[in-house]
Design a protein around this nucleic acid. Structure first.
Length: 866
RNA sequence: GGCGGCUUGGCGGAAUGGUAGACGCGCUCGACUCAAAAUCGAGUUCCAAAAGAGUGUGGGUUCGAGUCCCACAGCCGCUACCA
């Protein structure tokens, strides 16, 4: 498109207004105590998920959420709020480092260049961020406080009595020993089997494994010494406190399922001596095997139906209990399982496999001996790594029992006519001694009582959630502020923060699990003989608290000042309910962070809450997930499909306002929707129509603009309705319908012939949050003073909305038969009279009795006749 | 397998239980133009049309259902032997 073809000169005025907002700091938000702070205004905190600054630049998904929050932020400013609307960069992490390795440049350089690109692109879209609050997680001034928060976590334990974190100093005063304290810290070191990726040179959290494997990296299971965060202590609170949040129910459920609470019981089985030859009993005692195995079950009511037991192949008791005859088979099986990649264990698991250990366990409830097997369908990582198998009422156990010809014993009677074999629902207990006749729920309770009073088990709540594997072996992350002395870890003094990674020539993966920082001997080895921790933190660390730092981004004394924390946590009425538990009023971002980022950030926030550093129990009050934007072919955008749309191209062809408006007009924010370049043209045409209302082809003020009271009642009504609806729709985040109303309003202006100035300016204000540049420019060209962005939200006269006449729909037996113009407040009798006068109505009620009349004034008259 | 979401014209999508298809795209016709583009105006669910039919399918509640309830199907996500 050549310049002369552009319907309005966005390429000239968009950069002009961006420069003006920038130089005048139009969107600067002062903190309490700073110049220009107005304490009488309520606060509104609207947050975007900050981008990871990749080399590829922004994609069209970014401006979707960012435009939505920008509209809300600009609108709330106009409505008289102190709006906190910041932006920053999640600039640590594995992708940055991989990119640096590929290009041979230091990650600090590539990261800075990428941030530069992102900043330019964000500014070119005219977002009203307070750029004075811009942060990057890699900034040493930011790292300093990430490390400080880590030390707060490190120096805390979880107090079971209060159900909160407390400083470990509490334990010191109680006389706890150093080792005892280290065992309960919220950040702790453990030797644990982890996912190690040789070509990435780092371990990965369980939840990251799939992502990187998908990108072609290899991953293997290894036991390694790692830092962990005790997030499991917060499992119950992380579930319960979801109730206070205005989040989509689907996301809440996703988190609940991830945390995976299940109620059940531990049952203790003794290992029977009968199956054990003397030498293996001796083996057992030598390796410290207790002669009891504990299983976890959610169905203690089925204990009478347990016909065998299964241990995970890695279960530590396995070597001790295996009989001499079975030893070879068991070891072969264990070896086969450990060499299997998890892919095999996952995808190719159609067939159950397992081996008999030769040992037996005694069912505590009836004294029966049942065989102990090992099988890979039992995981070491969940429950106790051992199960009682009840094949009659568990699908997996049933499949296994069928394959290995193990007995299947019914203990639950279905309540419907289903076959009892493989019946896993609740029913009535049978063949179960003292439980017989009880429904499942009661049977569970009675069995747990029995187990507890006989010392054979106890009630237990089990979570799927594992402690958070928090260390990485990479270069591009925050080093741990920890040194090791005499085999024990300790925090470095606060005065040494931030602890930055040493410069390295080579940060490529070595193929060994030794962290990359250990290569920097001069950094690692300290004069007093202690050595630095060489692991680094995962990318999540920076994104766990960035929303707090925005509140007070340049504070060098605290991660956030008490005053800033108090003000930005203060209660404003959210649009959904009146109580506020989260600091951020509105948080918009993609579903890909539904579990991990949002769970980790909630966890850190709760620790900070417990320690008295923040006053809200939750970080994010209202969460909205924007839907994915698909390619024009309806497929996910990807380079390989060649359907990627670059926002820069759209901006240069149609302007930033058109891109913003189009992304909001595509459909509901939360919905998945395909890109259509024709649609961008459509909204661009709409903006051109608005432009031509006020500006002639020569660029002067259109003569249609008349600075006189609006005499056109209908036009006045449309403008008033538009201002009303746009405001309401922004509150509901229903941007597509707000835009369609503004299109209706523009069409009304166009048809009206003259455009009354006051109404037109009101309209410009309503359009401003969506299309800030063109509205500023038009306002300027028609002689307006000041910035539209700094004006108050337009008002309208309620009386202008009132209609006196309406088109009443007349139905006969629910079918539309006629429409009648009549007074809005007409009585039912008057409406009926008009209806009976209609030939179309008479045609349908002729010769019939009117049985019932439904009249909704202004809407509908339904005659029920037969 | 489990959980969640979605299903409305040729397309993107509108519809507090009350005129289905707002608004936009596309298309058709007209105006302007030597012509085209742009722009402006009219039309556009289906059927030639009256009648009628019509919101994935089948049932139900209701004076009235795209909307509420039950069952089913298809598509898209996430998750996966969690005992």
């Amino acid at each position: 498109m050549s310049d002369s073809r552009k319907p309005f000169p966005f390429d000239e005025f968009e950069p002009k207004w961006q420069a003006r907002w920038d130089s005048e700091k139009t969107f600067r938000t002062p903190n309490p105590g700073e110049d220009g702070f107005d304490a009488s205004k309520p606060k509104y905190y609207v947050l975007d998920m900050f981008p990871y600054p990749s080399g590829a630049g922004l994609h069209v998904g970014h401006p979707e959420g960012y435009t939505a929050t920008d509209i809300v932020g600009r609108y709330k400013r106009m409505k008289g709020f102190n709006v906190l609307h910041p932006m920053g960069y999640d600039s640590f992490g594995l992708p940055a480092e991989q990119y640096a390795i590929k290009t041979g440049q230091h990650p600090a350089i590539t990261t800075a260049a990428n941030i530069e690109t992102f900043r330019r692109q964000l500014k070119s879209l005219g977002f009203g961020y307070d750029w004075d609050r811009e942060i990057a997680t890699t900034d040493p001034k930011y790292v300093r406080w990430t490390q400080w928060i880590f030390l707060e976590i490190y120096n805390s334990y979880f107090c079971e009595e209060t159900n909160t974190a407390r400083p470990v100093s509490v334990l010191e005063t109680k006389g706890w020993s150093r080792d005892e304290i280290d065992n309960v810290r919220l950040a702790f070191v453990a030797d644990t089997p982890v996912w190690w990726s040789p070509d990435l040179g780092t371990v990965l959290a369980n939840e990251e494994v799939e992502e990187w494997k998908g990108k072609g990296h290899t991953v293997e299971r290894r036991p390694l010494r790692q830092w962990m965060l005790r997030i499991t202590k917060y499992a119950q609170r992380l579930i319960d406190e979801l109730d206070m949040l205005d989040w989509p129910e689907g996301i809440k459920l996703l988190q609940k399922n991830w945390i995976g609470r299940s109620e059940g019981a531990e049952v203790v089985f003794e290992i029977s001596g009968c199956g054990l030859p003397p030498q293996s009993v001796a083996d057992a005692s030598r390796v410290g095997v207790k002669r009891k195995v504990t299983v976890f079950t959610t169905r203690p009511d089925t204990l009478f139906g347990a016909t065998y037991m299964v241990l995970a192949p890695e279960h530590p008791f396995v070597p001790g209990i295996t009989t001499a005859e079975q030893k070879e088979a068991v070891e072969a099986y264990q070896k086969a399982i450990s060499s299997k990649s998890d892919l095999d264990r996952g995808d190719l698991n159609k067939d159950k496999s397992g081996v008999f250990t030769g040992a037996f366990a005694i069912n505590p409830v009836n004294g029966e001996e049942i065989p102990i097997w090992i099988a890979d369908y039992v995981m070491m990582g969940y429950g106790t790594g051992a199960i009682m198998a009840v094949p009659a009422h568990d699908e997996r156990d049933f499949e296994f029992a069928e394959k290995f010809a193990l007995p299947v014993l019914q203990v639950v009677q279905p309540t419907n006519d289903a076959d009892w074999k493989g019946y896993t629902e609740h029913g009535i207990a049978v063949n179960s001694g003292f439980l017989d006749g009880l429904p499942t729920a009661e049977a569970k309770a009675k069995m747990i009582d029995w187990l507890e009073s006989n010392g054979q088990g106890k009630r237990r709540i089990q979570f799927k959630l594992r402690d958070w594997l928090f260390s990485r072996q990479r270069y591009w992350g925050e080093p741990f502020p920890i040194v090791w002395k005499d085999g024990k870890h300790q925090a470095i003094p606060d005065s040494e923060l931030p602890l930055l990674a040493p410069p390295l020539d080579d940060y490529k993966p070595s193929g060994s699990p030794e962290p990359i920082l250990s290569k920097a001997r001069g950094w690692v080895e300290l004069p007093d003989g202690s050595v630095r921790e060489t692991n680094t933190m995962p990318q999540w660390a920076g994104s766990c608290w960035y929303y707090l730092r925005y509140c007070d981004p340049s504070n060098s004394d605290r991660f956030i000042s008490k005053e800033a924390e108090a003000y930005w946590s203060s209660n404003t009425q959210s649009s959904i309910n009146d109580t506020q538990c989260g600091m951020v009023d509105l948080y918009v971002g993609g579903t890909e962070h539904a579990v991990l980022h949002l769970l980790y950030a909630r966890f850190w926030h709760k620790v900070l809450f417990d320690l008295g550093h923040v006053r809200t129990p939750e970080p994010f009050q209202k969460l909205v997930n924007q839907g994915l934007i698909m390619g024009e072919d309806g497929q996910k955008m990807s380079k390989s499909r060649g359907n990627v749309v670059n926002p820069d191209d759209v901006v240069s062809a149609y302007g930033a306002d058109s891109l913003r408006l189009y992304e909001m007009f595509m459909g509901p924010l939360e919905q998945v929707k395909p890109w259509q370049m024709k649609g961008v043209e459509g909204v661009s045409r709409f903006l051109a129509r608005v432009w031509r209302l006020a500006v002639t082809e020569e660029g002067s003020v259109s003569p249609k603009i008349q600075d006189a009271p609006c005499a056109d009642k209908e036009l006045l009504r449309v403008v008033s309705e538009t201002i009303k609806k746009v405001g309401e729709d922004i509150e509901k985040l229903s941007f597509n319908t707000a835009i369609s109303q503004m299109m209706i309003c523009t069409n009304a202006f166009t048809q009206a012939g003259t455009v009354p100035l006051a109404e037109f300016v009101g309209f410009l204000k309503a359009l401003n949050p969506f299309a800030p540049h063109i509205t500023e420019e038009i306002h300027f060209r028609i002689g307006g003073q000041g910035l539209v962005s700094e004006m108050e939200w337009p008002t309208y006269d309620e009386s202008a909305l009132i209609r006196t006449e309406c088109e009443l729909v007349v139905q006969v037996n629910g079918k539309l038969r006629d429409r009648i113009w009549m007074a809005m407040d007409a009585s039912e009798d008057a409406a009926k009279e008009l209806a009976f006068a209609s030939p179309k109505i008479n045609e349908h009620i002729d010769g019939k009795m009117i049985r019932k009349v439904i009249y909704v004034p202004g809407k509908i008259l339904n005659l029920v006749a037969n």
